[in-house]
């Protein structure tokens, strides 16, 4: 049971991170491969505050606000750089973030990371057991997913799609494209902050590897497999891809090759979807 709950919790946390990635890549067309770094900022922020005795709700709020601000800053180059160029920039952002996580040892604990992050507690109620934490994450995922759905069906959501499709036409119609991009980057960052804070308090240990480029690429893969631009795609992708390590555990292969085999699976799946179903399982045509 705990095994399943652990999978459920992680898949839900990554669903929130995938919604963050979806807003940027799928909806407004800012192709960022740095969302794990943003999630990491949220995780470190929440972890450090909770370890200093700050209650979980406040630490979560701080992670949300910090990540919103950082995501806006890291997305700013996309206002001047088109498509492929921004991917390189965001790749750089990811590498810089990992370097900071590793080298700012006094704050982040360096490569060994932070251990003993307290478990989430709201108004005296502790989410110590897997069942309790699963309930917390499910409720938060429902809130985040509802906000995503509300945003997408609003006039503003249609504008975000329009900007991705044709920025010149959006500008010619008098839309404030800069404001829209900053707004969506802030919301996307906030989602990543939520995911990071939940991850830190659930695992109770974070290190730079938890939020490195592999995780960013995994988030993009989740989006490609699940389907960009849709709410369902952001949830299907993480559940499917996080099931792969669980399934590999059932197969009798040496532990030393489990990691590479998992990466191989992700790579093959990514290529297969790009070839045969680029819109993903639930996604609309790309």
């Amino acid at each position: 049971m705990n095994y399943f709950l652990s999978f459920l919790i992680l898949a839900e946390i990554f669903s929130i991170a995938a919604l963050s990635t979806n807003l940027l890549i799928g909806v407004i067309g800012i192709f960022s491969v740095a969302q794990a770094a943003i999630m990491g900022v949220g995780a470190y922020t929440a972890a450090l505050l909770m370890m200093a005795g700050v209650p979980f709700p406040l630490a979560l709020l701080a992670a949300v606000l910090t990540c919103a601000a950082i995501n806006v800053l890291s997305s700013l180059p996309s206002l001047r750089l088109a498509g492929d160029y921004f991917i390189i920039t965001s790749f750089g952002t990811q590498l810089v973030a990992t370097a900071v996580f590793i080298n700012w040892q006094d704050l982040t604990g360096g490569a060994t990371g932070l251990m003993g992050i307290p478990i989430a507690e709201i108004a005296g109620y502790s989410f110590a057991s897997s069942q309790q934490f699963a309930l917390l994450v499910t409720v938060i995922l429902i809130i985040v997913a509802t906000s995503f759905w509300l945003l997408m069906r609003s006039p503003h959501g249609k504008l975000l799609h329009a900007i991705r499709l044709n920025e010149i036409a959006a500008v010619a119609a008098g839309r404030k494209v800069l404001r829209a991009k900053v707004g969506v980057a802030a919301v996307s960052g906030a989602y990543a902050g939520v995911a990071g804070a939940l991850y830190a308090t659930y695992i109770s240990f974070i290190d730079p590897v938890s939020f490195d480029i592999h995780v960013s690429v995994l988030l993009v893969t989740m989006l490609v497999v699940g389907g960009a631009r849709t709410l369902a795609g952001s949830i299907i992708g993480p559940f499917l891809l996080l099931a792969i390590p669980q399934l590999l555990a059932l197969v009798d292969i040496p532990s030393t090759v489990v990691g590479p085999v998992r990466q191989l699976f992700y790579g093959v799946i990514l290529i297969a979807f790009m070839l045969w179903r680029p819109q993903g399982i639930a996604g609309r045509k790309l």
């Binding site: 503003h156 959501g157 707004g183 802030a186």
Partner: peptide, 9 residues
């Protein structure tokens, strides 16, 4: 009107 993310959410 209603053309910002916070109002939408």
């Amino acid at each position: 009107s209603a053309n910002d993310p916070l109002t939408a959410i």
